[in-house]
């Protein structure tokens, strides 16, 4: 779910944009910025829920050390969205608690 964003990019920064899909919603972002930055500017107030307490979490450090910004990107879970530049058509998903391996590969294992 997207809400009022905490950050915005002034129009004066105008440049080429890309569109990514975040939990089935299209999000437009300037090319070249990180997925984490794109999601914050789009109004993603949380990126995942924590593994133990299932509390909402969002980026803290933006430089690859805190691991709070983990999301699934193009089917690969637990990627550090602050280190991945946006690409047109990227599919990004929130993570609920621990990573879930694909059903297609583990069948009814869970």
């Amino acid at each position: 779910m997207l809400t009022e964003p905490l950050f915005s990019i002034p129009a004066s920064e105008g440049r080429e944009t890309v569109t990514i899909i975040f939990d089935d919603q299209a999000v437009t972002a300037p090319a070249g910025i990180s997925v984490a930055a794109a999601l914050l500017v789009a109004g993603a107030s949380d990126f995942r829920t924590s593994i133990v307490g299932h509390e909402p979490r969002a980026p803290y450090c933006m430089m690859g050390v805190c691991f709070e910004c983990l999301v699934e990107i193009d089917g690969v879970p637990a990627r550090q969205s602050c280190l991945v530049p946006v690409k047109d058509g990227m599919i990004v998903r929130r993570q609920q608690g621990a990573v879930s391996l694909p059903d297609s590969e583990i069948g009814d294992g869970r």
Partner: peptide
């Protein structure tokens, strides 16, 4: 590994999923 949702319900001699995942 990082914690994962449970998918291995039996331990193996070289591989097991802990209760934490």
């Amino acid at each position: 590994t990082e914690r994962l949702q449970p998918f291995l319900h039996y331990p193996m001699n070289k591989l097991r999923q802990t209760v934490e995942g």
